[in-house]
Design a protein around this nucleic acid. Structure first.
Length: 877
RNA sequence: GGACGCUUAGCUCAGCUGGUAGAGCAUUUGCUUGACGUGCAAAGGGUCAGCGGUUCGAUUCCGUUAGCGUCCACCA
């Protein structure tokens, strides 16, 4: 029966084999015809060209834990994997590759370029998928999807046309965020704001037909070329006389109106704002309110437009420099102040974003946001931790229309067709080649959709929508969405309104938010810092289970966590501990199963561990249900290492290796060991799938995989609170003896006799083998102890150890005095509580009872200590 | 300017609905104890950021102050 395991756990040797084993058995495959309750998770699709990083590793680990846990609990689990085409990111990568060949995408043309991207995707798209497998992810690979596969594309097409027909998608010339490097429009969430050093230039504008000047302060002098007005606050008495007058734009000579608008803050700058409606979101709105002209002065490359005279063609920052020089030369620069301010940069490339007016496609957000807010407000969708609901509401309530068109080639092409002959535009479910009206050829909109437009449909597009599939019927809405707080706006919010709008049903019930994985110093892991840790390297060195353990333990939902080699090492050590404990159990196993023996055969130590185990099952289950994965895992760690290994296994050795011939006692110990191990392996499996599977397969088992076993259930028959308390008295005595010995530097090899004075003779008599094995005791006697002893007072007994000349009477007396002081303190503490009428009247009965028990215990112990002190003092005299 | 989070042992962090503070790592000491030195045993180390309040009782709830951090926001 006994199987030989290696002395050290070698994850490298088992992980790939077990993953293949699971795939062969179809462990990850979900059945949409199942009678069970479904539990569905859709993966946040990683970028198809991406590499697995620590953030992914954490995200996937959490999902895998939920999936494996629910599967053991008897749910029909589906973890649906896939990848995202990642419009900008992927296109940039391929363009970089082309650049090495000296080519641009324009050299290739749209079609040839897209072929290259697809080829790239075929070549590298599976990289991240294979990396996910290394982590142990229990994804149903038969259902793997891609945001640009046929089905997802059909969903995108349908959604676009539907929204257009409902009037929720429109085309318009509005101010958008433009990345001059990526050369595309961006949505509001794709702009990141960073504080940069800047300046505030005060520029003089002459007032027409007057000697007056108005001074406008700006951080972006180059945009003055596009100024079409000057705004002041309507209540600003300094300027009321100017409202309605005209100013002359310096350098350009354009006449622009001076008007009043509430937007202007009187206190900031000079109180006069130069208004550039085409290059500033606020100015854009003022421009609309006041019917100003819109003049584009910066083009899609970030250069000044042709209409800019001598500045035409200059880069916007070069133009700034020249314009400032010119203003200065003309004496129009009144003042320059240093002013750090927020600059929007592209989230992909970091280039300063240029706000500009442009014709783009937008999703009208207000009507979509309302139900999405409601769903969370009503608790239909729940964020964990709930504080992220604030973030969500705040965004949803103030959301602006979503710019969805991108001037890229890689992505879902916008299904709008233009007829140049009759000037009409058609948004169509089918591709058009000729105009439905006039029959002339049509051309399709050049732009593609924001990547996040397709991700927003992920929870249902991946299940087959718009087809009415069995998957969709059975698995939608999904159960839990796991993701980082950094993409709540990008993705979570948009999935919510999309699900509600297109499915008429929420996309998921719970949103589990986790934080970032930072480096050991707490810095964000980033490519530019080069401080990223490669999860695959960690897996290679320490194993996937150790990595998973590291990412989960000591962390709570929504909080960032630091990653350090120390932690992984500790995790690896734990895996090794599990391995060796199992090895021990297997080496001593002569029974054929892991069933519990009849309760009547159980010894106190068996009841002790079973009782603890039973409570563990309850608590871990509870913690998992409330997504407290870190808490659950640390309880498992403590139970396994401390309770099971350091105590129970050691206690069992007394029986397993007993000289007397009691085969039944041995078998009982083996059975309990195997049983507890089996329970622990199942509880640990969601967190550490590989090692638990490998060990399960070594135990006597019925199934071909631990994944087919079921989650342990608490059992009322295993609540042995009295036995547990008894056992703890023995353990307390062992602890006390060990501490005394250690204090006195007695080597473990030096065995000592033990004299016990107790009213609980049977209990302590049963503990004899444990004292011998765990506390370095030779013989135990309940007789009167000799004179020269060390006295140890514990709960339930007084223990005496004659340690011969090792004992320094003075030291022993001091120790006892110290002990006495401690007990006095305890008694005082408990006593003051119990003397407090408020406490007695208002505290719950069991708390009062507990205090009374403690008081009794400590009082008894104090008596014993006093006795010993008296004896020792007598002797010294 | 809003919103949120953090401040607990030398370090990194747990601590659910209030009832004498925990883990890992680090430190010190001892140990070939028939699974494991990726181990075993023992020990030191915290007025749970400050101040108020609620309570019989607060690290835990409320308010407030300070420091740090994150997100959002139109101060040109």
């Amino acid at each position: 029966m006994a199987k030989e395991l290696k002395k050290v756990y070698e994850p490298q040797e088992v992980e790939d084999r077990l993953y293949a084993h699971w795939e062969e058995l179809g462990c990850f495959k979900a059945d949409n015809k199942s009678k069970k309750e479904p539990f569905t998770v859709v993966i946040p699709p990683p970028n198809v060209t991406g590499q697995l990083h620590m953030g992914h590793a954490m995200d996937e680990t959490i999902q895998d834990i939920l999936i494996r846990y629910k599967k053991l609990r008897g749910y029909e689990t589906l973890w649906l994997p896939g990848t995202d085409h990642a419009g900008i990111a992927t296109q940039i990568k391929v363009e970089e590759m082309l650049r090495k060949e000296g080519l641009t995408r324009y050299d290739l043309g749209r079609e040839a370029f897209l072929e290259r991207v697809w080829a790239w995707k075929e070549k590298y798209g599976s990289t991240i998928i294979n990396q996910l497998k290394k982590l142990g992810s229990a994804c149903d690979w038969s259902r793997e999807r891609f945001t640009m596969d046929e089905g997802c594309s059909a969903a995108v097409r349908k959604v676009f046309v539907d929204l257009y027909e409902k009037g929720l998608i429109y085309q318009g010339n509005r101010i958008i965020n433009w990345c001059p490097n990526c050369k595309t429009a961006l949505s509001d969430v794709e702009v990141e704001y960073t504080e940069k050093a800047g300046r505030l230039w005060h520029i003089e504008y002459k007032v027409k037909d007057s000697d007056e000047v108005v001074v406008c302060a700006t951080t972006r002098p180059e945009t003055m070329l596009g100024d079409t007005g000057i705004a002041v606050n309507p209540n600003d008495k300094r300027y009321t006389h100017l409202v309605g007058k005209t100013a002359i734009l310096p350098l350009v000579g354009r006449e622009i109106p001076i008007f009043a608008d509430d937007y202007v803050e009187m206190e900031f700058g000079t109180g006069c704002v130069k208004v550039t409606p085409s290059h500033d979101p606020d100015d854009f709105e003022m421009g609309q309110r006041h019917g100003l002209d819109f003049i584009l002065v910066i083009d899609e490359n970030g250069r000044m437009t042709e209409g800019c005279g001598k500045y035409a063609g200059l880069d916007r920052y070069e133009a700034r420099r020249v314009i400032v020089e010119d203003l200065e030369a003309q004496g129009l620069l009144r003042k320059v102040e240093e002013l750090p301010h927020n600059v929007g940069v592209c989230y992909r490339c970091g280039t300063d974003v240029e706000p500009m007016t442009s014709t783009q496609w937008f999703v009208k957000m207000k009507p979509l946001a309302q139900p999405a807010i409601e769903a969370v407000r009503k608790g239909d969708i729940r964020f964990v931790p709930s504080r992220f609901e604030n973030t969500y509401f705040n965004w949803m309530e103030n959301v602006r229309d979503w710019c969805i068109s991108r001037q890229l080639w890689w992505g879902h092409r916008i299904p709008a067709f233009y007829c140049d002959a009759c000037g009409k535009m058609f948004v169509s479910r089918e591709d058009l080649t000729v105009c439905p009206d006039c029959g002339a050829p049509v051309r399709q909109d050049e732009d593609v959709l924001d990547t996040w437009f397709s991700s927003a449909l992920w929870p249902f597009s991946t299940l087959g929508w718009p087809e009415k599939t069995d998957d969709l019927a059975y698995f939608y809405p999904t159960s839990t969405l796991v993701t980082g707080y950094d993409i709540i706006f990008f993705w979570v919010a948009r999935m919510i309104f999309s699900g509600l709008e297109h499915m008429g049903q929420k996309p998921f019930s719970d949103v589990l938010i986790h934080g970032l994985v930072r480096d050991a110093q707490g810095r964000k892991m980033s490519k530019s810092l080069g401080n990223g840790v490669d999860p695959l390297e960690i897996i290679k060195l320490y194993g996937a289970d150790a990595l998973r353990f590291t990412l989960i333990t000591g962390n709570s939902p929504g909080n960032d966590t630091r990653f350090s080699a120390d932690k992984v090492e500790a995790a690896r050590n734990f895996a090794n501990k599990i391995w060796n404990a199992s090895r021990f159990v297997l080496m001593n196993l002569e029974v054929e199963d892991t069933a519990l023996p009849p309760l009547s055969q159980l010894e106190p130590e068996d009841k002790w561990i079973l009782s603890k185990m039973n409570r563990l099952v309850e608590e871990v289950t509870e913690n998992l249900e409330s997504y407290d994965l870190g808490v659950a895992l640390s309880k498992l760690y403590d139970f396994f290492w401390d309770s099971f290994c350091d105590w129970y296994i050691e206690l069992c050795k007394a029986r397993l290796f007993a000289e007397d011939d009691n085969p039944q006692a041995k078998l009982t110990a083996q059975s309990v060991l195997a049983h507890v191990l089996f329970v622990a392996l199942r509880l640990l499996h969601p967190f550490m799938p590989f090692i638990t599977e490998e060990l399960y397969l070594s135990l006597p088992h019925e199934k071909t995989s631990i994944m087919f076993e079921s989650w342990p259930k608490p059992d009322d028959a295993l609540r042995f609170s009295a036995d547990e308390a008894d056992m703890e008295k023995i353990m307390g005595a062992i602890n006390a003896i060990r501490a005394r010995r250690s204090e006195m530097n007695v080597p473990p090899s030096r065995r000592a006799a033990l004299f016990i004075e107790t009213k609980e003779h049977d209990l302590f008599a049963a503990g004899i083998p444990f004292f011998q094995r765990l506390a370095g005791i030779s013989e135990v006697s309940f007789e009167q102890p000799p004179a020269d002893v060390v006295t140890i007072v514990t709960d339930g007994a007084r223990l005496f150890i004659p340690l011969g000349d090792l004992v320094d009477f003075g030291a022993e007396l001091a120790r006892l005095q110290n002990e006495k002081k401690k007990l006095h303190k305890e008694i005082e503490r408990a006593g003051s509580k119990l003397n407090n009428p408020g406490f007695l009247a208002k505290a719950p009965a069991e708390v009062v009872e507990e205090e009374k028990t403690k008081l009794g215990k400590f009082t008894a112990m104090l008596e014993k200590v006093d006795e010993s002190i008296a004896k020792l003092s007598d002797k010294q005299k």
